[in-house]
Write a protein that binds this DNA or RNA. Sequence first.
DNA 1: ACGAACATACCAACCGCCCGGTATGTTTCG
DNA 2: CGAAACATACCGGGCGGTTGGTATGTTCGT
Lengths: 216, 216
Amino acid sequence: MPRPAKHHPERGDARTRLLEAARDVIRAKGFAATSVDDLCKAAGVTKGAFFHHFETKEALGVAAAAYWAETTSAFFANAPYHRLDDPLDRLFGYVDFRKAIIDGDPAEFTCLVGTMTQEVYGSHPAIRDACAASIFGHAATLEPDIAAAMAARGIEADWTPASLARHTQAVLQGAFILAKATGGREEALESVDHLKRYLTLLFSQPRSKGTPHDGC
Amino acid sequence: MPRPAKHHPERGDARTRLLEAARDVIRAKGFAATSVDDLCKAAGVTKGAFFHHFETKEALGVAAAAYWAETTSAFFANAPYHRLDDPLDRLFGYVDFRKAIIDGDPAEFTCLVGTMTQEVYGSHPAIRDACAASIFGHAATLEPDIAAAMAARGIEADWTPASLARHTQAVLQGAFILAKATGGREEALESVDHLKRYLTLLFSQPRSKGTPHDGC
DNA sequence: ACGAACATACCAACCGCCCGGTATGTTTCG
DNA sequence: CGAAACATACCGGGCGGTTGGTATGTTCGT
């Protein structure tokens, strides 16, 4: 059910402009605090156009999450770290890439679907599910490199590639919260550095079971 | 400027009931989506009482963050892990305690100030600052044990106790987002286990500089 | 000691505005 | 033409916030 939008290839059509406005405005103000009029003003369209393309405001939230998933997956798929030979290098390349794009205002580098998940998780299950699909779908793209790195280094662990991939997303999401709390990026970068250190430790001891502190 | 409220100690006064309602309702619906009427209904008071105690809805948000900071700091201060002798055991005791209270619905175990930070960071700086004070104040309570554990084990690291303390909060906040995305607790527990594993690795190699992957 | 004066805590009713949503055009393109 | 893509104008309701009032202390001059 994606939009063909063949008619006006001149400039971004209203639907796309609304989705881009949603991406920017919702990250800055949150979903509930963003009114339909806010979005129309930011996109330069009228309310009639909005409800022509989206049945309700909730439907726009779902579409915005899907649009986020599309654009970010394309963005990461084209990132240069994929060209590295060693899967572990690609994993660190991913984390460094995430660090590199933490720049400017938090509204510009934080995650739309993470923000929306927190906010609407109880009131808009449809949006929450779309956000969850984006988050876990992105996490899943890390699994092959993690699994390959484990195999290449003979790591036998009590954790799975999937769980470590999800953990990277948890750290990033948490880092975004700290960044928003202070308004700066330092705390976020700091936490991602701890994540890098964790990965370094995990992959530096070949047949580690992690030697956990207790039976965690 | 705290409330004496000596007059009617018979029942919980309206102000406290409103703050408790805010803690519960905002965690479930978010700040912006929670109306003043919602809070009044949940607290069993009228709107007149609300605006008697709080000048605006934003003021309630600030007070709710402060109330959260008070109640949670008392809650953690009384937790049993503080009685352990080894500071590292206390640190792991803290993390296990956090794991133990991840139970039931996400609205019951997630963090009010983390949720509000994400939502209002751009629109209500006063609330954001109160949330930031709560988060970083809580993180600061971990620093002494981390520093003592480092000293006891002769750890010389390129990270500080403060940064590791903040990182634990980032992981927890991120874990809450994953939990809300799926509606369950498993993903959150999983990420906290990765945090435990990180701490175990950090403190198991005495004079580690972390041997980072590059000059991070 | 006592009551007038004041303060606090709360309630019921109301207000204007802005919100999500709709009904009805008008333009544009194949 | 005809239909999709937009614009204009307009609701009804809920929102944050206000007003005026009451019941119950608390203070203080005398």
